[in-house]
Simulated scan of single mutants.
Amino acid sequence: MNKLIWVLFLVFLSCTSPKPEKVNGISFVGSRKEVAQVHVNPVLDIHANYAAIMPYGFIRDIEAPELVFNTDRQWFGERREGCMQYIKTLHENGVKVMLKPQLWIWRGEFTGHMVMKTEEEWEKFENSYAQFILLYAELAEETQTDIFCIGTELEAFVKNRPEFWNQLIADVRKVYKGKITYAANWDEYDETPFWNQLDYIGVNAYFPLTDDKDPTMQALKEGWKPWKTKLQALVEKENKPIMFTEFGYRSMDFTGKKPWLVDRGEMNVNLQAQADAIQVIFDEFWSEEWFAGGFLWKWFIDHEEVGGHADNRFTPQNKPAELVVRNHFAQGKRTGS
């Protein structure tokens, strides 16, 4: 009888134990100015529990080994002192942070294609990139930042220089004691070789879902099926949870066709398509135990001045999609997930 009672007690505990908190995050875009309470209030209003802070390093072109970062010529929110002020203000409001240093190549060339021409240039670039990442890993430790991301969408760099990445991860671990991830693009994550050394599999989830101009929620759900199967298989292989280090959709026609598009082409505004696509990604993933949550792309600090019903960009601010985000994040807050 005692053994039966003990078994029932363990079952009861497993049923009543709180689920791990999901990351209900936004990508908090750096600005020219300091963050004030008025800028954080809209983040609290949508019940976000995390924000990604993104300092930038700049490169002239995809073959240039010179990386420029943390200079007075950059916006305040894109350099070290700005990130510190942003993190401090968010933490004071109970919002956790992922610090996510990123690269920007002049004219917006894709970082995943970046390849150096010679061994000497590779070594020069690696030295500069390591300095960039370790500067912010030290800041992450100093500010007790909750998650640190060691890179974003660097497919060719990862593929060509595996030894560098192994050493970088080890060096980051020496200065930062929190959770670490890498933000792999949607078409590189399954070939990233170092997931077993990180705490989360990080994916920028711009998966193509449907070619429909005005997609239904059912079409979006169907589009997710093959990708979801692959993601879950990787979780089982690596025994690591997946986090969407970025996810989002533009408020335009064909929003599920090529969700990664950032060009400023004249695409018709479609507010409902954005709202539906975001709702579907919540429905498909946030209830899965193997899924850690994610960071919505993207959220600007001057809330009242961005987005709106004439905007076809990624931000959900002042659009129907913002209500979708608020309702979902609020539900997560109530359930503790």
Rank of each mutant, 00 (worst) to 15 (best):
S31E: 05
K33A: 05
V35A: 00
A36H: 02
V38D: 06
V38C: 04
V40N: 01
P42T: 09
V43I: 15
V43Y: 07
L44F: 09
D45H: 09
D45K: 11
I46S: 08
I46T: 09
A48R: 03
A48Y: 03
N49E: 04
Y50G: 01
M54Y: 01
P55H: 05
Y56Q: 12
Y56D: 08
G57K: 00
G57V: 07
G57Y: 03
F58R: 09
I59N: 01
I59F: 05
R60W: 05
D61V: 02
A64Q: 09
A64T: 12
A64D: 15
A64Y: 10
E66A: 06
E66K: 11
E66Q: 13
V68L: 15
V68I: 15
V68P: 11
F69K: 10
F69Q: 11
F69V: 13
N70T: 12
N70H: 11
T71S: 15
R73T: 13
Q74F: 14
F76N: 05
F76V: 07
G77Y: 06
R79N: 12
C83V: 05
C83K: 05
M84F: 03
Q85G: 00
Q85E: 04
I87M: 02
K88W: 02
K88L: 02
T89V: 04
T89D: 01
T89A: 02
E92K: 00
E92M: 03
E92G: 01
E92Y: 02
V95E: 03
V97T: 03
M98Y: 04
W104D: 07
W104A: 06
W106P: 08
W106Y: 08
R107A: 10
E109Q: 13
F110P: 13
F110A: 11
T111K: 11
M116Q: 07
T118H: 05
E121A: 09
W122M: 10
K124F: 09
F125C: 10
N127D: 15
N127R: 15
S128Y: 10
S128A: 14
Y129I: 15
A130C: 12
A130H: 10
Q131L: 14
Q131V: 14
F132W: 07
I133V: 14
L134C: 08
L134K: 09
